[in-house]
Amino acid sequence: MTIVPALDLFVAGVVLVVAVWTVAVRNTSSAVVGFVAYGLLLALVWVRLGAPDVALTEAAIGSGLTGALLIGAAARLRAGESTVAAERPGVPVRLLIAALATVVAAAIAGVLLSLPDPAPTLAPEATANAGATGLGNPITNVLMAFRAMDTMLEKVVLLLAVLGIWSLSPDAAWGGRPHLPHRAEPDAALEFLARVLTPVGVVLGIAVLWVSADHPGGAFQGATILAAMWLLVLMAGLGEVPDIGRRRLRLALVVGPAVFLTIGLGGLVVSGAFLSYPQGFAKPLILAIEFAMILTVATTLGLLVAGPPVAGPPAAGSAAAGSPARRAAP
């Protein structure tokens, strides 16, 4: 037994322990902290599975942004928690559920052992066709060319999530701005961090996108970094979320899928298939889509954490607001 399998076993063991703790611990805030730790450990697992792209996504979105979202919610829900927790079903029902969940998990594990060897894979096909796009990162190829439809539709899901969250605002707040629920008080340390880190983060986010043509990275991972920088600026009190009625914000939210759709339709006309790229233009077109997408995804992720608008738009007369909130319906 070499050291590597032992390390794998160790990591898997720690992941499981943290997962059990996340489910079992009484206090929800602790559970959320456990989940964040779990997500970070999982990123390690993804690296071990040869998927650095996914490791980046998991660490950034699965752990970081989800954690930010949940920790704030846990704090706000603390007041009513104990009464709801008392509704937990009795021991027999819990045992029954545990038994059934075990059967399901065992079935999945059993399938793992029965999977054919050698495993079916599309890696050779993906390599053989990589020339059509001129990109070296196979995952970017899958996301942007072979299965571009899924990626485009997934942007629609993101937009729907934003719309769904906005639609939960009070009627009077429509057109106003979301207010970050867990915003720190004016604080020198946080402000300093925001001022120092943001430029670095923005460069890094765009770099992660730029290199994704040939190396691990991509629009999502880059966008998450940008969104994190935006949230940091907001939390440090250096900026405000714009009014949701702002035309520019709306455009930022749809530009990703819109460019995707437009270039896709262009492919229908020029090269004969929806979401195909003309020979030789694939790389610049894909990069164009990715740049539109990084803007959309970063804005979306930030807004998903920021929540629904809480205060109404500034009154029409107040010039100080500077943002004509109702420009949407001139």
């Binding site: 937009l159 749809v254 759709l261």
Partner: peptide, 29 residues
């Protein structure tokens, strides 16, 4: 791809485009 297959694309693209445009335009539009 069969003859007329592009219609299938339109069946999905038209509502998606309507939603995107509607989101960007806002108000009555």
């Amino acid at each position: 791809s069969t003859e007329g297959g592009a219609l299938l694309v339109l069946a999905i693209v038209i509502p998606v485009a309507a939603a995107l445009l509607g989101f960007a335009a806002g108000g009555r539009r």
